[in-house]
Simulated scan of single mutants.
Amino acid sequence: MTSNATRKRRERGSISPEDILAGAFIVAERDGLDNLSMPVLASHLEIGVTSIYWYFRSKDDLLRKMTTQATTFLQNQLPTTEGWKPEDWQEFLLSYFSADRASHQNANVLTDLVLMRTSSYSIPSTHRVYRGIESILAYLTKAGFTARQAWFLYSSLSLYTRGFIITERMRQVNQTPPVGLSQLSLIDVENMPILVGLISEHDAMLDMADDESFAFGVRLALEQAARILEETSG
Rank of each mutant, 00 (worst) to 15 (best):
G163P: 02
N108K: 14
R219N: 15
L21V: 07
G180F: 00
Q90P: 04
G132M: 08
S95C: 13
L115D: 02
K59T: 09
L78A: 05
L186W: 13
A22C: 03
V40G: 04
T80F: 05
D31K: 14
T50P: 01
D112H: 11
E168C: 06
L63H: 11
A226Q: 14
T118V: 14
Q90D: 12
L74T: 04
I228H: 08
P193K: 15
Q75M: 14
Q75E: 10
V129D: 06
S58L: 06
K85N: 12
P124Y: 12
A221Y: 11
T141C: 12
Q75P: 00
F25H: 09
S185T: 10
S155N: 14
T50Q: 10
P177V: 04
V129E: 05
H127A: 11
G163M: 05
A107G: 00
F214T: 00
D31M: 07
A225P: 02
I133C: 03
M192H: 15
A209K: 03
L93W: 06
S122N: 07
A215M: 10
G163F: 01
K8E: 13
Y55T: 09
V179F: 04
K142N: 06
T161G: 05
G48Y: 07
L184I: 00
I47D: 01
L45E: 01
R219F: 11
D61C: 09
L157D: 02
E87L: 14
R64I: 08
L33G: 09
A107K: 06
L63P: 00
L222G: 08
V196H: 03
G23Q: 06
F56Q: 02
R169T: 07
E168G: 04
D203C: 11
T6C: 10
V27Q: 02
L45F: 07
G132D: 11
G217P: 01
L110K: 01
I194T: 14
T2P: 04
D112T: 08
V129K: 12
M192S: 15
L186K: 15
M1S: 15
P17M: 09
I133W: 09
P79Q: 06
L206I: 06
A143P: 00
A99D: 03
D61T: 07
S122E: 03
G13W: 09
